[in-house]
């Protein structure tokens, strides 16, 4: 019997967005950025980016303005906690479901 016949299914994968599944579906509160308060958005300068730096899932972009990929954002709220200008608010997902309806 050759080695290839064993160990056909293991957990090995190429790292990249979505390797952990559609983790955005886990979210109960959604971080929403107020661009009037957000430092890089407001000043038009690549500064601050604490949200990008602290996000444990790498779903915040280091762009003007910063954006959040809600497909994978789990809604942990660390970005809102770390934002020095209070520009990020955690909003109940239920309110968006009502809106969508």
């Amino acid at each position: 019997m050759s080695k290839e016949e064993f160990c056909k299914m293991i957990s090995v994968s190429e790292p990249g967005p979505g390797d952990g599944g559609n983790t955005g579906s886990w979210r109960v509160r959604r971080p929403v950025i107020d661009l009037e308060k957000c430092i890089p958005a407001k000043t038009g300068k690549p500064a601050c980016f604490n949200c990008w730096l602290y996000c444990p899932d790498g779903v915040v972009t280091k762009t003007l303005p910063p954006t959040i990929d809600y497909t994978y954002c789990k809604g942990c709220g660390i970005c809102a906690e770390e934002c020095p200008s209070g520009a990020i608010t955690m909003v109940d997902e239920a309110s968006f479901i009502k809106e969508e309806k």
Partner: peptide
Amino acid sequence: PRNFNSVTLPDVRPDLH
């Protein structure tokens, strides 16, 4: 680079490709 034994969910799911 590869991920080994990262979290699996109760169901199967598509990989990156």
